[in-house]
Structure formats: C-alpha cells, structure tokens
C-alpha cells in the first residue's frame, strides 16, 4: 500500500520536472498559483503559439522575471497585464479584450451558430412542407406509383 502511495506521489511530481521556469518557487502557494495564472495568460510574442509559461525562449524568461518583480512590488493582476499590453499590445494577451477591432473575433462563434440555426430551420420547414404537399405522402392511392422503382 505504501509503495503504491509513493509511486502515486512521484507521478504527481512529473509535471514539475519540465523545468522551463527555472526560477525558484514562491514560498506562498497562493502567490505561486497567482503567478502561474498570470504567466499562462501572457503570450510569448517571440514564439507566438506558446504562453510565457510554456516557452524557454529567453524573452519569455525575461517576461516571467518581470511578472515576479511586479508581483513583489505589490501590483494587481490587472496592473501587470496592463504593463504588458502597454509595451507589447493586446496581442500579448491570450484573452483579447472586446473592442471595435476585435468584435468580429468575439462575435464569430455566435454568428456561425445563428447562421447554422437559420439554415437548419429553413431546411426543416421546407422539407416538412414538401412532405405535406406531396400527394404521394398523403394519398395512399398514389403511393404505389411514386415508389414504383423501389423494391
């Protein structure tokens, strides 16, 4: 039983072994999770498809250091994200703000659902009307003739 527990604990440690972020951990677990949240919200502008938490590019390390220092200086999460957007623009945020330039980005999923919904309704309404209007469906006397080719 004890061996199983030890193995389970070791498995829990595996994610820590990636060691992209070589800076020492925070003493306070609350600060650590705040830090983790922040660095996952910030894009590595050099490598684009990774957050600064996932990247071992030196600029990402510099930005992680900056996040630590701003936290140590008592800045709020909003202030830290603002600090980054002041320098790198909205692109640095993985969660871009809703603005006139980004409304299409945010509205696109809803737009597609609406377009799909309208299409579905139109198709269903039209199909059901055809079924009602089709004499073959309503008049059993004609049913045989329209299905003549069917086995």
């Amino acid at each position: 039983m004890r061996r199983v527990l030890v193995i389970a604990l070791l498995i829990c440690v595996i994610p820590l072994a990636r060691a992209i972020d070589t800076a020492p951990a925070f003493d306070d677990p609350a600060q650590q999770s705040r830090y983790n949240d922040l660095i996952h919200q910030l894009r590595c502008v050099q490598c684009r498809s990774q957050s600064i938490a996932d990247s071992n590019v030196s600029l990402a390390a510099d930005l992680r250091r900056q996040v630590r220092e701003l936290m140590a200086a008592g800045k709020s999460d909003a202030q830290i994200l603002q600090y980054m957007t002041d320098r790198y623009g909205d692109y640095v945020l993985y969660d871009p703000p809703v603005k006139p330039q980004t409304w299409l980005l945010w509205a696109a999923p809803l737009l597609f659902v609406i377009i799909g919904g309208i299409t579905a309704v139109v198709v269903i309404v039209r199909k059901s009307r055809v079924a009602v209007d089709d004499p073959a469906e309503t008049d059993p006397a004609l049913a045989g003739s329209s299905d003549a080719g069917a086995p």
């Binding site: 502008v45 030196s58 600029l59 510099d62 320098r87 790198y88 623009g89």
Partner: peptide, 13 residues
Amino acid sequence: GEGRVAIDWGVYG
C-alpha cells in the same frame, strides 16, 4: 544585458 530596457520598448526580436 538583462533586457529590461528592451521590455519597456516592447522589443521581441
């Protein structure tokens, strides 16, 4: 050397 001023200028490459 530490890239601090570069961050203020938004340098990424």
